[in-house]
Design a protein around this nucleic acid. Structure first.
Lengths: 133, 133
DNA sequence: CGTCTTACTTACGTTAACGTCAAGCTGTAT
DNA sequence: ATACAGCTTGACGTTAACGTAAGTAAGACG
């Protein structure tokens, strides 16, 4: 029952992506739908991979990185060494993300300061205007 | 004394940007260095604007947005309405940044979960390997 | 049979913010 | 004079992840 394949449109609806995106992912060797004549048929495996792709994107991995990770997963659960590498890449990514977040927080604080300053300025201007009347 | 102009290289060294960047900003009407023959000479005003540009970039504004903001500032401190708009734009940006940060935090948490899972998996593999010996 | 729907391939377009030549001018130190 | 450093303008290249349009095929339906 879970062996049913899906058409490109069903995939698009199910995962909220465009056909172009799925074809693009195939061209980048992230997905491997089978063919029925011309048409693509996406298998359970493709669906699993797509889920991982979308998750990877949320994590900020590039498609190329995602492809490499997917390949590692595919190489079988036999190679712990490979998995170890995956783990390291992921940890690296985590560090990057934390740095990014910290920078963002700094920028937010910074911008908040500026806004306080701007508020003050606007208030002063308003007073000035009132006084002039 | 503060009226001294700077050459492009001095600017690059002072603000850690490339010549290309400064020329690019000029072409985008963010900076207006004067000319001495061929050469660009950057004034105090340019330096002030560049500082604002770099700050704006830290805040995640696009160069086009920055240009508009700089223009507003230039239109004089007379137009409180304009300043009000600046303020609004900035607040909008702040919201965006906070959203971005929240998403990033979610992703970080998510990734942390995955890593915990991966650690477990690796540990299991190691045990399996040991047991096999 | 005609038409509609869905899909297909190919290939150029998009966006931002510069990078990277190429070719030429200018001032100065040797 | 010449070599060299530093500047100039133009213009094409880069990157990621698709968007978009043109032209075609293939199956379903009435």
């Amino acid at each position: 029952m879970s062996e049913k394949t899906m058409t490109i449109r069903e995939m698009c609806d199910a995962y909220d992506v465009t056909p172009r995106t799925l074809r693009f992912y195939e061209s980048k060797e992230l997905l491997f739908p089978i063919r029925e004549g011309q048409k693509r048929l996406f298998t359970k495996r493709d669906r699993a991979r797509l889920k991982l792709i979308l998750r990877g994107k949320r994590f900020g991995f590039s498609l190329e990185e995602i492809r490499q990770l997917l390949d590692l997963y595919d190489m079988g659960d036999q190679q712990a060494t490979q998995l170890q590498r995956t783990y390291e890449v992921a940890q690296h990514r985590l560090k990057d993300m934390e740095e990014q977040r910290d920078e963002l927080n700094e920028a937010i604080d910074d911008l908040r300061e500026q806004l306080k300053w701007g508020e003050q300025f606007l208030a002063d201007l308003a007073n000035q205007k009132d006084a002039a009347q």
